[in-house]
């Protein structure tokens, strides 16, 4: 079979892209727009209240809310938690069928058709970023047509989690070199939906990208940094201007 142009090899791509996300907690208002955007982009099933009570709800991103202080000096804190795409991911070595692995672009990938549903990965994830399909997902009749055709609908018995909207990454970077993909030319659904631009997505290998520049921010931290998971998702600490 003849090829006119030489396609890029996997090694070319590894040098090209390293996807990362920075979440500025000073800007997060806890509105959950990211949660809704993610749910509709990635065909995440609709959770009944009972699923949350049972701890079996499926969420690729969630906004955790906690209170700091006592009334009246009380503050609401929000932190959006998604798969941290750890460089040293605890979920990967425990999978007996290699259904989750790290790809050359710094993404922690979940391969649905390999997954046999042992749930070891979910149990080993300190961020609770993984969700298991305990039931066959069902959408109401009038929502069937809003399913995203670019994303597989996961069936019962499969583990799923944030993919950093790999379908958008594929669509925007397919057969392209980094020079053809300017910073901010595409975003995952959550980043795109965030009304306060608290989330930033980009290529860490591009020194001019917004995420690369935010690496030097003094507010930067990783969640559970002491565990040594080396997440690719970074947070910028919320700083109170009027005293703690």
């Amino acid at each position: 079979m003849a090829t006119q142009t030489k396609p890029q090899s996997a090694t070319d791509r590894s040098e090209a892209f390293k996807w990362s996300m920075v979440i500025d907690l000073d800007r997060c208002t806890g509105c959950e727009a990211c949660v809704v955007a993610c749910q509709s982009e990635n065909n995440v099933p609709i959770n009944e209240e009972s699923a949350f009570i049972e701890g079996r709800a499926i969420q690729w991103i969630r906004v955790e809310r906690y209170w700091e202080g006592e009334w009246p000096d009380i503050k609401a804190r929000f932190i959006p938690v998604l798969c941290q795409h750890c460089e040293n991911a605890p979920c990967e070595p425990v999978c007996p069928v290699y259904a989750t692995y790290h790809n050359t672009e710094g993404l922690n990938v979940q391969v649905y058709n390999r997954c046999v549903g042992t749930r070891y990965c979910g149990n080993n994830c300190p961020y609770h970023a993984r969700s298991f399909n305990y039931w066959e997902p069902v959408w109401p009749e009038d929502l069937r047509n809003q399913l995203n055709p670019d994303v597989t609908v996961r069936s019962r018995g499969v583990m799923e989690k944030c993919s950093m909207c790999v379908q958008r990454i594929r669509r925007s970077t397919r057969s392209k070199t980094p020079n053809d993909v300017p910073d901010g030319s595409f975003d995952p659904a959550c980043v795109q939906a965030c009304p306060t631009s608290a989330m930033t997505f980009g290529n860490l290998n591009n020194p001019d990208s917004k995420v690369s520049k935010l690496q030097d921010d003094e507010r930067k931290y990783h969640v559970f940094e002491h565990l040594g998971t080396a997440p690719t998702v970074m947070y910028l600490k919320q700083v109170d201007t009027h005293g703690a």
Partner: peptide, 14 residues
């Protein structure tokens, strides 16, 4: 493989 195209799982499975 023959054409040096990507063989990362996430090329097709996502």
């Amino acid at each position: 493989r023959d054409n040096n195209a990507p063989t990362d799982c996430a090329t097709c499975h996502y």
